[in-house]
Amino acid sequence: MLNQKQAVLLERPAKTNDVLPSAPVKIQDTDTKTVGQVTVDKPIMTTRNVDVYYDDKQAIRNVSIDIAYNEVLSMIGPSGCGKSTFLRCLNRMNDTIESARVTGSIELEGHDIYDKKTDVVTLRARVGMVFQKPNPFPKSVYENVAYGPRIHGLARNQSELDEIVETSLRRAGLWDEVKDRLREPGTGLSGGQQQRLCIARCIAVNPDVILMDEPCSALDPIATARIEELIDELRQNYSIVIVTHSMQQAARVSQRTAYFHLGDLIEVGETSIIFTNPQHKLTEDYLTGRFG
């Protein structure tokens, strides 16, 4: 059931699937209303009118966007435009920042995640996160992956746990590399392996959505390519929201792309369309390298 506010919001004409007239009419850079395909048919997550403040400073203004099942949504934009901030709203990681305040509504399969009745722990188990810098726990590879299932009680016994660990590592494409060193510390792996370990750790709790904040920015091109392949495979089972600095990466891995600018969500659309035919002047400027 939608509450009143959301109902009104959804009726607002400009933000629906209206196909705007294609080029050459560009929307001017003073206009910060989101253009493009904000909603999807069957969203797993919906966000409406999200504002984020750090103390009095507003970092995100009035962002509304849906996330579909089994899609990779990439978020691009110049640094400091609020991509990470928005991403961290989706699993309430912003709760850990004392000054951060979030308003608006964010729903996961129809449940408001900021509702008092939502347990943030359950939420984060369903909306996992992979960070910019690989951050494996200073424990063994096995313990890293087993940690989530342990705290969430996903395994009835040791053999089930072993199975989860193995499947997760396989899905993350890491099994063959680490199957003989499960007891060695996860911090001893290479950077790319560490990041895949973090992904394995994340999928071990079988989330619905995986958030990735520039997961490849600390990696070399070969490791990056492996992660990109992995993201594509993971789409079979999960919805993925990825923040990236690299437009090529966004183009390679994502189905939809959202462009942020100074706290505003400027444009959303199918990746191929955004990259070939952006509607908004700001998007075009960014894509053509005029700033960023």
Partner: peptide, 9 residues
């Protein structure tokens, strides 16, 4: 179905 529990036993 022990996963219906909110918390670990």
């Amino acid at each position: 179905e022990f996963r219906t529990l909110h918390s670990l036993p």
